[in-house]
Nucleic acid binder design. Structure first.
Lengths: 195, 195
DNA sequence: TCCTTAACTTGACATTGACAAGATGTGGAT
DNA sequence: ATCCACATCTTGTCAATGTCAAGTTAAGGA
């Protein structure tokens, strides 16, 4: 206890319990297993109980995606903190980015999937935090000019690589670690950062 | 007639009709409307008719995705043909790539989504064709060294940008055309191509 | 002409998201 | 302290979906 926020009524905090259950299902059995009813079952409540906390399944998915973004930002921060220079920080974040996607493909898919839900205050906040983290790292490494476009360029590279790897769309010829190294090493030059 | 392949039995060619119906639904109403039964309805057959042509819904989606890849390769080829030099061809293909994704987000999502189906001979062939088209363009612009890694770098950049744009994950600050220009202009330098 | 067999239909089942109506318990008002 | 309004949760139901099973239709060779 003490961690929970609401601590209301019967269940204790069904809202957070459902989000946590969903996150567990997502990481264990993939996104196709992530249903409203499965979350309710895992939380030990009836199939219609989530209705009072989430207007639709999309709202629940948004909250689960938000926890994904929160963990994502933490992971990148942690790895960036170890790096000495801004450029090294940027590269470390790139590595961390791809590693997150490869280790939690289902979560990453939910976070960045096309059909993923848009709204949810918590999700919006988490997305903004992720973006600012990236934009700040790029600014630190390359100066403030063309800040957004440069950040988009970096983001596109690591995001595209991650998506291609986890979506299994790569031809078998590809040496993934070698290609990853090339993508990471290309980040700083792309934004005109002095090494 | 004459275009159809099987021309069998009652319907004429239900297999192709279902693929075409699916493609229409996909582009008109998005991927969430693309169901087996909806395709059957659109083709004017009963809900279980597709069973004899596609073992599961995943197999039908794979064939629809294959048509997407086929159109995709055609579109890139067409735009690349207009460009004079290898580097210009590469840039034209990048533009064409992003344009395809933005014009047909649902099709693109089906083609590259994480949950998208893997098998299907036709899909495999179409994917290989797309990859070779890209690899050849990169080779022509940058020479044969590190061919695959360079192609992956280019692919990651345009794919990541496309996915971010169509998944609505961008902060509103972003100037999309400006960011796109930066991504495209970055392709040739990234692979060490002489302009 | 018949008959094997592919193509298609009808009907069914489990699962899902969503809704409605009832049961339950919490916390504040009196 | 008692009671009541209301949030919380349950039970039951509905339409839609993918899949399967069994029956029906028609095509093309024997």
């Amino acid at each position: 206890m003490a961690k929970k926020t609401a601590k209301t009524y019967h269940h204790g905090d069904l809202r957070e319990a459902l989000i946590k259950a969903g996150r567990t299902i997502l990481e264990k059995d993939g996104i196709e297993a992530l249903t409203l009813r499965a979350c309710a079952r895992k939380a030990g409540v009836s199939h219609a109980a989530p209705q009072h906390h989430f207007a639709s399944v999309s709202d629940l998915l948004a909250e689960i995606a938000a926890t994904g973004f929160e963990d994502f930002v933490k992971a990148l921060d942690k790895d960036a903190a170890r790096a000495p220079s801004p450029v090294e920080k940027l590269k470390a974040m790139g590595q961390s980015y791809v590693a997150f996607a490869r280790e939690r493909p289902a979560v990453y898919q939910l976070m960045f999937g096309v059909g993923a839900p848009q709204s949810s205050e918590r999700l919006q906040a988490a997305k903004v935090a992720a973006w600012e983290q990236l934009a700040n790292a790029v600014s630190a490494a390359a100066g403030p000019d063309n800040n957004e476009a440069k950040a988009m360029q970096v983001w596109s590279a690591v995001h595209g690589f991650s998506m291609l790897v986890i979506s299994q769309r790569l031809p078998p010829i590809i040496n993934v670690p070698q290609a990853l190294k090339r993508v990471i090493d290309g980040l700083a030059p792309a934004i005109g950062a002095r090494p």
